[in-house]
Design a protein around this nucleic acid. Sequence first.
DNA 1: CATGAATGAGCCTTCATTCAT
DNA 2: GATGAATGAAGGCTCATTCAT
Lengths: 192, 192, 192, 192
Amino acid sequence: MPRTEEQNQHLREESRARILETALTLFARYGYEKTSIRMIAQEADIAQGLLYNYFAGKEQLLFAIFEQSMRDVRESFVLADDASDPRPPLERLIRGSFAIVRRNLTFWRLSYGVRMQATVITGLGQSLHAWTDTIRQTLEGYFRQAGVAQPEIEAAILFAQIDGIAQHYVLDPEHYPLAAVEEALVARYRSS
Amino acid sequence: MPRTEEQNQHLREESRARILETALTLFARYGYEKTSIRMIAQEADIAQGLLYNYFAGKEQLLFAIFEQSMRDVRESFVLADDASDPRPPLERLIRGSFAIVRRNLTFWRLSYGVRMQATVITGLGQSLHAWTDTIRQTLEGYFRQAGVAQPEIEAAILFAQIDGIAQHYVLDPEHYPLAAVEEALVARYRSS
Amino acid sequence: MPRTEEQNQHLREESRARILETALTLFARYGYEKTSIRMIAQEADIAQGLLYNYFAGKEQLLFAIFEQSMRDVRESFVLADDASDPRPPLERLIRGSFAIVRRNLTFWRLSYGVRMQATVITGLGQSLHAWTDTIRQTLEGYFRQAGVAQPEIEAAILFAQIDGIAQHYVLDPEHYPLAAVEEALVARYRSS
Amino acid sequence: MPRTEEQNQHLREESRARILETALTLFARYGYEKTSIRMIAQEADIAQGLLYNYFAGKEQLLFAIFEQSMRDVRESFVLADDASDPRPPLERLIRGSFAIVRRNLTFWRLSYGVRMQATVITGLGQSLHAWTDTIRQTLEGYFRQAGVAQPEIEAAILFAQIDGIAQHYVLDPEHYPLAAVEEALVARYRSS
DNA sequence: CATGAATGAGCCTTCATTCAT
DNA sequence: GATGAATGAAGGCTCATTCAT
């Protein structure tokens, strides 16, 4: 007897999710180019051909990973942000950012590894730009509200600061003193 | 009669330089993996085989680019540093960093594009680590002299700050307000 | 629906066998080094890449040919030997050897063409040595039983004799008087 | 002042001889295909291009080696043969053959390594055939004089015997009991 | 005569993708 | 939806050969 529509849907979701997760792991570990479809299929325990039922190609798979992770991050931000947290918003944002990086280390490693590649810039430029712009604008809003002289520049600086720290952390998570850096950064922005 | 030693040396230097330059450009534009030896040879207007008279392989070519560029950067730093500049050392260092990035935009794009790749980490990890460590320690020295509480953490923060800004700038040099950001950053560290 | 396991196995065996056979023919005709993967694929009417689904590389392909042919030869020997043949064992062995060479002319041409190549000596040295040693020891056993003075030397001589004849025959099968040579050799060893 | 014609001639001979010798050594050690022109030039301490002043190409170099070695062997034979040696001619021939193999181990290794290659058969077939035929006919002459029934077949057998032994010896000169085999073979043919 | 930089065809191999079932 | 055998373009690299000097 054939599966119900619902069951099929469920199977699809499951397979898709497994492929995405496996690909993320391998992309992050070996790099996008060095990871072959065969490796992904093997690790995900599916046939190579099946992958193409879910994604149009290797590149689309990468984009799908980004889209999903970007959605996750956005959700994390929302959750972290509108909590009735008594701490000042900038502090919440800084701490939230690092929490996200800590939690999604794998994705961030992949992200920093490919975000300068032409492929990614061509294929994801739009969404990526929109994404970072949102963040920058959020920051700018804070600074504007706080009456800072050059809110745009201040936002650029803080954004770069967070990004730079995140990247150094991702490069060597074992030794990077993220906690201390986070405290120092928060302290600096609290005083201002 | 064979060419003189001098003529040969000239030919060799010319070819080597042309290959290095072309490769840097293409690696930076398309990424290391997406750039094929064929592309480089075509763009440099030489035969594919010639490349292997100068570099043992694609990877060695990449490393040679790094070595040369790192040497350039070091020289720039030295030149920028021991000038009898009346400005405070931290300011000189910050301004010097951005000047170098501005001048070697292409190399930095390549560098940020590959520094998370296994190839690079394996093959250049040592020199790269030594390089960044020198910078970090220089910064730490400044802060220590200035009597800052946590010089190590402060150094990490400033380093990440510069690195983050440089990277955002490299991602979109046309629109990034590097000048203003630089001023703001300098101002912040001058006051401290 | 995917192919059944049986269908797949059939496909695989067919392809593998076709590659092996084609490669043997071409290796024997043009030599191992002069035969390219392209040639094999073309002659076997398959895509180049397929070959690598069955053999790890060109060298492994050569080894696989040897393994299969050596197995064939061993089987031939066993079949030829334990027959209730009234003829003396040495005669049976001599005749059997030439029968095998006649039957597997192509393989022997390949074998004589590559057995001095480093690749083969490195990769097959063990099995090859074991193989020839078995033959030599079999011969030695015969001579020892027959009470010959220097069984070891006699075995070496007969082995070289058979090998030399086979090789001359393989070099020019059309004209070499193998039948007459075989009779003369048998006659000589019968009398002794 | 320009070199005299004679000096030039001398230099040419010297260079040519060095190339031939180096090539023989390397061809024998690594095989014809695996030995590159570059290796030969390097080992002979000359420029790659120079080789083409003496030989039309790699194949012609191989052929030249064969021709020279074949000439050497012929001379050795003549020297060995017309000595006023009291031993019977067949014995002298057998001993002479092995002496030549022992003395020119390198050439024989090369020879046995390439004599089945299409290239060699095509390019040297004529001379090679003529060469071996001479040997065979010499042998046949001995047997005919001795009143043997089938001199042609006997010659083929002895030729194959010597060739087979030589080849086994060349394959493993350290361990092969050539001396004992030689004695046994001589003894066998002396009695007859 | 001699040099060695330069050429470019060809090699083995990998891998994203297709397709018959 | 799922399988995996098959495809073929493209990759990095080698090497015999040419040629300007």
